[in-house]
Amino acid sequence: MSQFIAVLVDGIVYSSWLFIIAVGLTLIYGVMKILNIAHGSLYALGAFTSVTLCGLWFNAGLPPMGSYLMLLLSAILVGLVAGPVIERGLLRFMYGKDEVVLVLVTYALFLILEDLIKLIWGVDPLFITGPGGESPYSLLGNFEVAGLTYPNYNLVLIAVAVATGGALAWALARTRSGKLLLAVIHDREVSAALGINVGRIYFVTFTIGAMLAGVGGALTAPTVSVVTGMGAEVIVLAFAVVVIGGLGSLPGAALGALIVGLVRAAAVHYLPEVELFSIYFVMAVVLILRPKGLFSGAEVRKI
């Protein structure tokens, strides 16, 4: 019984984490039709930046609680710096190209960013800890479920995931920008003809998407050793999530994250040998049964 509860709790925490990373990916794909491999690098950038900022914060002897602000700031920095640079400097010259070509462009970008990270932060593992061993991961204390202890930090992950998903859903459905965005998603040419500034929408979308990747990385940094290659690991997981849910679908990303999260948690507890296998197995099965994912749009008439 307690193992079952552990699966549930682990699964939900893991799902929340996955959702935060995957939602930016699906947003960018939905609007711009770019399956962004470099999302993994942006995630890593978020993690590395937060190591640096939290390190500065702790070294300055400031109150440890402020390290959370530094995590947030890292995500915003990644979004506001890397996002615009990549969109204006590279992607905007590629719009309208084949989707597969766009994937390859972001793959090239991924390779470049991976090394950029190595150049800036080196190749040794980094940790977020203050001089007295403080870490945002443990500062908040713990909670107990069915005799198992979990750091309260996990609740932060869940809260951020729910808040992000809720905010995006609300913005899409209720705000003017959201409606413009939906129009662009539905038909880019017609939207442009109607006077919607598609270029600006792409710019903003990519920046927000990059920021979400940064949030994912910054929130992960305190819980792991921050190493090069972490982006490569995460991006395939995020692919699995968005492909299961249906590329470009917000509820799809949520459902995909839940499925992958719970499957992995179950595997870890009951059958650790199949941990990774199980995720991609589910991805393949979903793709085979529903080639365009669980939430997918209608087919258009061809002839």
């Binding site: 399956l35 084949d98 989707e99 597969v100 994937v103 395939v236 692919f239 699995a240 492909v243 590329l247 650790p272 040998e273 199949v274 941990e275 990774l276 296998f277 199980s278 995720i279 991609y280 197995f281 991805m283 393949a284 793709l287 085979i288 080639p291 365009k292």
Partner: peptide, 28 residues
């Protein structure tokens, strides 16, 4: 299975298959 898929979906399903093998091998 794959012959029915195109574009990004072919890429993703083939990716999933390769990662299944990866998942198996790293735990063997």
């Amino acid at each position: 299975l794959l012959a029915k898929y195109r574009d990004i979906f072919f890429a993703m399903l083939s990716l999933a298959f390769s990662m299944i093998l990866y998942g198996l091998l790293v735990k063997t």
